[in-house]
Amino acid sequence: MYRRSGRGRVLLLVFIALSLVIITLDFRQNPGGPLKRARDLAATVVAPVQRGFSAVTRPVGDFFSSLGDLTDLRSKNERLEEDLAEAESDAAALPQIEEDLAVLQEYFELDKSWRQMDRVTAPVIGRAPSNYKWAVEIDRGRSSGIRPDMSVIAPQGLVGKVIRAGSNTATVLLLIDPDGAASATVEGEGNNGTIRGNGGSELLSLEFIRTDADVNVGDTVVTSGQDGGIFPRGINIGSVAEVGGEEADVSKDITVEPFVDFDGLTYVTVLLETGDRIAEDRAESR
């Protein structure tokens, strides 16, 4: 028993030392280092199992979440039919509007709208296996044109950005993660700020909006396009839930409720003309 405990202690010290070496390497490594390759390898090993589990468990999860919606399905259906009729009439005028927009963009040298950008839609196959990180794994990667720093959206609004792109999978950092941030503004208000995740809370914080800015509860917050090409201008983020801060403060404390349900994400869309590509295009045009 004594010898076994002694050997266990030696092994413990060896593995603690190994962990500390890895932590140090992680702090000191440059992008593309050995640990980056290890991340890609780990994602490659786990992704097929995640894909299988997602395919099996998604219908179960969807079934339970849709049970609560059964009562208002009829009214929702009627509303959708009305929306469809309206959308069909709008669609007839769309080609002309797009043509006019393209001419105006070229004339005034405006950035391309995110609505016109090439995009790829991908299923969510996994989530970060931790309570201290908010990210999702998607089933498309470099082979579909996805690269780090590209914007990711859902029909309701901004989801986050790509932070790792493997050959067939990619990792998206969600906006609710404390490391997730985007340049944002309150629609109709000229002030630019930064929208930031709070981790444990589903609510976001809008920082650096001046105290004299006219911001009210219910106002819509959108991206301002001041991120050097990562998030294009005008993507919906959420609505203002609370406005705080003293008059003596430099900026307001604004809490924003996101439009996107980050827990319920099943598909997301990656805007392929954002991130490095758009930043490079801008640099070339200067």
Binding site: S19, L20, I22, I23, D26, P129, K133
Partner: peptide
């Protein structure tokens, strides 16, 4: 370590160290 490698932007080795102990 596998969890650390799958967590983007986290410190690799931290969960490995805790779980080892």
């Amino acid at each position: 370590l596998l969890i650390d490698l799958l967590l983007p932007g986290s410190i690799i080795g931290l969960t490995a160290l805790v779980y080892t102990c």
